[in-house]
Design a binder for these strands. Sequence first.
DNA 1: GAGATTATTTGATGCAGATCAACCATAAGC
DNA 2: GCTTATGGTTGATCTGCATCAAATAATCTC
Lengths: 267, 267
Amino acid sequence: MPGHDMIIIKYHSEAGVRFVREQEKPDIRRLPLFRDMATANFETLMQVAYSQNFPPQLDLLRQGEPADFLHIVVEGMVELRAEWGGRETTMAVVGPISTFVLAACIKDTAYLMSARTLEKSRIVMVPAVDLRAAFRRDPDFAMAVIVDLAGSYRSMVRHAKNLKLRNSRERLAAFVLRQSALNGQAPGFVLPVEKRLLASYLGMTPENLSRTMRQLESEGLKVDGQRLIITDRAALTALAQPDPLIDGPDTELTAEELGLPRANAVG
Amino acid sequence: MPGHDMIIIKYHSEAGVRFVREQEKPDIRRLPLFRDMATANFETLMQVAYSQNFPPQLDLLRQGEPADFLHIVVEGMVELRAEWGGRETTMAVVGPISTFVLAACIKDTAYLMSARTLEKSRIVMVPAVDLRAAFRRDPDFAMAVIVDLAGSYRSMVRHAKNLKLRNSRERLAAFVLRQSALNGQAPGFVLPVEKRLLASYLGMTPENLSRTMRQLESEGLKVDGQRLIITDRAALTALAQPDPLIDGPDTELTAEELGLPRANAVG
DNA sequence: GAGATTATTTGATGCAGATCAACCATAAGC
DNA sequence: GCTTATGGTTGATCTGCATCAAATAATCTC
């Protein structure tokens, strides 16, 4: 496996490559993807996996590279970014505990997106070869992979629908309502990511996001730095016209959508 | 299965519900999705499946409805459309032989897109319940489902990247080059779909598509109705900056991307 | 904590692309 | 064949959003 050595050479000194710790296994095991897997297979995967700490702003992988590892965010936050011709855009931000680049690993082909840490993060990396061997051997794991991929696909369909059908004001309003819903309809929450990143995810410029937020202050939203407060839910709802076929959730209350991480509720 | 009866009642008189014909089975069997399946399982699926002819412009299913059937286009052409708040957009057009709404069937939840025939079409419908039972029973089929879903996911990621990273002129130029590539770099081809549909797929209005095509006439493209001819590939390439991570193909020459069907070469 | 970065906001301006409206072309119906 | 839809083009105009520029605010560094 050339991939294995590469990663070791590349990061060993700065980040400290480790095998997966006993204490972090239960959290990974609890993921829908690994939950139903045979214990022996899970242990095998963990044995060949690496676990590393990365500093913020570090490129974990670049689009176009061959997919060597399934990545699991155990701690921290990772941005999935797409680049083309000097432009770039945020496709998703994943927080603990979830996986990314599963599809590329399965197809044994190039990553379509780059990934970089947004904050200090702990990432578990499972070699793609072993991953593929695992679900060829374990039907329950194969089932979990199927369900995971179907969910990822649908969440990307939603992202595309959102972009094609709504304008940026509507997208922002829908985003705000969605974050609130993820916090049990809390009226206030703090943004889970920087505004420039949110802007990119929503397909707009930071300037436009800033102005659009100001606009929404007359439509039921109060903005205070990273803290947003819904002051008139009805008005915002009229504007966003939330739709489960765009905003989710897929099924009631499963909420581990791929997209942006959940915000934290606030007074 | 309420779904079964419903479809029979709904379409019987006009379209003629049939069981899958012997003669169309081999074509379906050849699909990557069904190719490696155990023969007994394939036969079972075909036994419970329906096969119907539909007239053009007929709604096969509506977004939001529970996913009762995996659909297979055996003949004709089907548009996958997304709707929201009175607006609508084309997400993909599928031709023979391929499947759609696999992910919704697997998650046993609502369709995210509506589907309607663009021309007279023959559709095979496999009950979602039986489909799920099939890959729970057949590991080879499960593998094929995994690969299919991974491909669908990646093709939707590409669609989103295309929308977020390129402007409409670039998207059109890239589309033209891609169609040419699918025809062995043929300089000319006829559009596989109406222009209004292409416009919607590319995320622009018909008026804008028309004008953009005219613009491209000074950048190496000749437009003659449905027939497009590349007169200066270098110029178009400079404009589109084709990228396999957006335009495909995923792997060399597999070319059954979800997106728009292949054009026919001309000239 | 002073200085240096980096994120955010605000303003001025430009442009890509939408919208509205009319006209032309192609195809379908009788 | 003429007529009627429907799709496509063209023109005029409008506007949402990007871009460029500069000021503030927040965050990091030493």
